[in-house]
Design a protein around this nucleic acid. Structure first.
Lengths: 152, 152
DNA sequence: TATTGTTATACTCTATAACTATA
DNA sequence: TATAGTTATAGAGTATAACAATA
């Protein structure tokens, strides 16, 4: 079977299950990715944040609007450069982050069943190869994940 | 890094590139999956077709409407059971199928670069394991891909 | 009544273009 | 002029619920 089709099918099944797990915990994939980025990295501005997640700035604004309405974060202008909006998680956002982290960790435990560390290393490496083989502008390769417990 | 996150990132990059490749050839992922299914399998009805692709019946109707409007296929009632709509590819649909097959084949060649047959076998197996680990209702496991040349 | 498919409607995620505010 | 972000709008893909046609 073509490897792209295998990847597409697996990713579809897994991503739907993961979406369900996040939804049950009160989140969604975009909100989870945004919370991870806010929690683990210092982004100079929203464009960097959007790039780290792999979406456009306007798309990020869309999600931030919803999350701010939900009380998960606040945006303030940076006094040093009032064009820049500083995004900060609220206590409510922190609580959601922890609930989602729990859901993601549980999910990953379920996902790994039947695969040993060597398998997982090989899988991660090969997935990186696939993405690299078709990457156009190459998402930041230094964007490794700093906190293994903090995401699925 | 959590394996689910590695999969999500890789799948996002790869699926966007694949969507672009299909779009350049005049198609989309859903239309490609539908054409593959029409070409390689005999489905008793649209519900089976939808299930094979992993979407709901109403979603399939949505795509079939667009594809029929585009002249890629026709729907006729089955005389033996007039509730069933027989879906048949037109010559135009056949031509698109062949263009998309070419695009998908080229894409897969690019995608496999740097991975040998052993890698690909291991990767396919592990992707299956991941999907199986989180599958809820388990998509038809007998739905193997009958024509390796016919898809990405 | 049960089955097959369609229609109506809506939601999520994403994007581009035009715009405002700031530098 | 250039940069950061927002607003307006749109499109693709998906879903559920209600419906029509057929058995």
């Amino acid at each position: 079977m073509p490897i792209g089709l295998a990847l597409a099918r697996s990713a579809k099944t897994v991503s739907r299950a993961f979406d369900d797990a996040l939804a049950a915990a009160g989140g969604s994939l975009p909100s989870w990715l945004i919370l991870i980025s806010l929690k683990t990295r210092a982004h100079a501005n929203q464009r960097e944040l959007a790039a780290a997640i792999g979406i456009q700035g306007a798309t990020l604004t869309h999600h931030l609007n919803a999350m701010e309405s939900a009380g998960l974060l606040v945006r303030r202008r940076d006094p040093a450069n009032r064009r820049v909006h500083q995004v900060t998680m609220t206590d409510e956002g922190e609580r959601l982050f922890h609930r989602l982290r729990r859901a993601a960790t549980d999910f990953d435990r379920q996902l790994r069943a039947g695969l040993d560390d060597g398998d997982l290393d090989a899988l991660t490496r090969m997935l990186g190869t696939l993405a690299g083989n078709v990457a156009t502008e190459a998402a930041d390769p230094t964007d490794t994940f700093p906190n293994p417990a903090a995401a699925h």
